[in-house]
Amino acid sequence: MSIPHVLNRKNRILLKELTKTDFKLRYQGSVLGYLWALLRPLMMFAILYVVFAKLLKIGGDIPHYPVYLLCGTTMWSFFTECTSQGIQAIVNRGDLLRKISFPKYIVVVSATLTAVINMLINVVVIIIFALINGVSPSPTWLLAIPAILELYLLSLGIAFLLGSINVKYRDITSIWDVLIQALFYAVPIIYPITMVASTSEIAAKIILLNPIAQAIQDIRFGLITSTTITSWNYITSPLVIIPIILTLGFLILGATVFRRKSKFFAEEV
């Protein structure tokens, strides 16, 4: 997997065409088609907003809370879509792996790129909502870029790692489904981190050591409000680099395991 190999013409064509196909097939046969890429997260947001902001009255102290919530749910959906699709990519594309020879990472990356496209469309929606909500455009918006990239690399690392194991042990798909449910509550998406901090500062700090939480809070900090509590402004010790180390760790471990196992995907899938 050297660099020229990654950028090689044939692989680029393949990656593009597989991503296009994935995206087309996702909404094949539905009346609203691609609109679902927008509607799904908006609907999830509407439910969470009614339940948490209106009924349970959470988040009153956060400026632009609805957009803040939308931003969190969108990025969470991006993470779950990326990992679930990525983990299943090798099994789903088993027919290709068994019949042609090409670098296997292409199927994983193409599966996650559909999630990237969906996320980018939704970022546009977030920005529109933010402007309507009175957030003024600011250079801090650019801070969201490295944070989104980090979230993507983390997802990719997880997809490579668990996807390789999933070829032989399909239990991984089910385990990940459950794990992701648990993770959802471990990340301050629907509840503000201040709620946790008010009872236990340690707990809040531990939550913010999770790279998913760190990335999402950074994106909110950049896009929505600089009052957002992030890992950087809340954790004062050098431990604050733990999320970055975890992200790189997953990426390196995932890539290494994938490289070793991918030689046998064609016969095991």
Binding site: R9, K10, I13, L14, K16, E17, L18, T21, K24, L25, Q28, G29, D95, L96, R98, K99, I100, S101, F102
Partner: peptide, 29 residues
């Protein structure tokens, strides 16, 4: 290699779309 004809052919796509997809698998832009 032609291990099998029509690798990657997808029944839900049109003939046109499948031609481009299969072509990409053979390395054609």
């Amino acid at each position: 290699p032609f291990i099998e004809l029509g690798v990657g052919f997808n029944p839900e796509l049109t003939g046109r779309e499948n031609v481009y997809l299969n072509g990409a698998l053979l390395g054609f832009s």
